[in-house]
Write a protein that binds this DNA or RNA. Sequence first.
RNA 1: GUGGUUGUAGCUCAGUUGGUUAGAGCGCUAGAUUGUGGUUCUAGAGGUCGCCGGUUCGAGACCGGUCUUCCACCCCA
Length: 456
Amino acid sequence: MKPSIPKGTRDFSSSEIAKRRFIFETIQEVFECYGFEPIETPSFENSSTLMGKYGEEGDRLIFKILNSGNYLQKVTDEALEKKDLNQISPKISEKALRYDLTVPFARYVVQHQNELVFPFKRYQIQPVWRADRPQKGRFREFYQCDADVVGSDSLWQEVEFVSLYDAVFSKLRLDDVVIRINNRKILTGIAELIGAEDKLIDFTVALDKLDKIGREGVLNEMRSKGLSEEALTELEPVFDLTGTNLEQLQAMESMLQDSEIGMKGVEELRFVVEKLEELKLDSARLELDITLARGLNYYTGAIFEVQTDKMKLGSIGGGGRYDDLTGIFGLKGMSGVGISFGLDRIYMVLEELDLFSEDVVKKPKALFVNFGEKEALYALKAIQALRRDGVRAELYPSSAKMKKQMNYADKREIHFVVLAGEEEMNTGKFGVKNMRTGDQQNCNQEELMRLLGSKD
RNA sequence: GUGGUUGUAGCUCAGUUGGUUAGAGCGCUAGAUUGUGGUUCUAGAGGUCGCCGGUUCGAGACCGGUCUUCCACCCCA
């Protein structure tokens, strides 16, 4: 049997782990700096918790877990005969793998509402699974790093999240990141204005594709979804928006005069944009984009999407406000807003741009050559002392040929090889070879500690 | 879910209109070098050609199916 792993999953080498950890730690540090506290939820939930929360498309992409035991027991012969999946699926599968972190979080908030202090700020860094077809930057198992606040409808939270995005990407030295921002209320307002409220989802999904399929493409898609020519004509000004964020908002304001919800959206966006102009971003750019829609249908206010033009890849982060996410689990009137970082895509970008510094990968500092039982014991005494000082040191496990041991050190890129044979033992010395320069010197244990204990 | 693409040694890949025993580079193991890695030289090991079926006297090559890789769409981080 040829060993393999499932489609869309990956093994990680130690150097990849080191780099991934660096990203995790950076994000985690910033999350905590902004006052978020960690939680974790199970990797699988009851199907009923997840199903129906991500739209029809989402349901298809949820990994369902087959019941244990005789999972066909509850299925009627009739349903089986007809191969009626909608009937069979819920009977044979009652659990499903986590599809994102937001819905489990909503469940968590409702379930633990009495123990939480609101506004509740949590972050969560865990893998999620999607039964998607893998392609560039798209995996079936990947990590999301989420931070959300529930129990506050303050727009300052939106301001904080944009600032948080900026802080993380600045720390990762990934500059020229674009944070696109929009507000669902504006989209609703536009739909209202052109008389397409009932087709809000189709409308926003089509509009979102503007940069991909162009103006005509968008109009065609809207036509095919049943929007009237009249509506499309009224939409024209949206495509012609230009100028700064505030100028565009100005234009939207005059356009949405007759839509109460639209005006609310403009007002909200203006608040966020204005405050961030005062506060200044470090390296990211905040860009108002009226065409930004994002598929998830629970967003009701601000929506964010983070992209980098340094690499052709989907978004590396996204988020938004949802006024009633916990409502479906029975807790009404709880507004939440949150953002997510796509770790795996950020990794790809940093790798592509060669932004990982070399020292994220921790190599052992010293390998002691094994010359035999007595010498090995002598070496291990020094190794123990080094380890107490936090120096990564080890002994070659067997007294193999010198060439083999040296070769081993070389391949693992170990900085120093320490040689202590009979002669060194008798004089209490150690031969230390620097594998990068090839220099070799004799020293006593004290000097050895100083040499290997130093930075690099 | 739709369309395309890929699969030959551990890795990267050659392999002619179908024709004997399927190759190269790198890597690996050993030796040259019994206390010194990288460089060099020599020798060696390593392949049911993704899998199943079909066409043929004969298939790594052609046909069908299936799995896999990567890419695009849908959708998304």
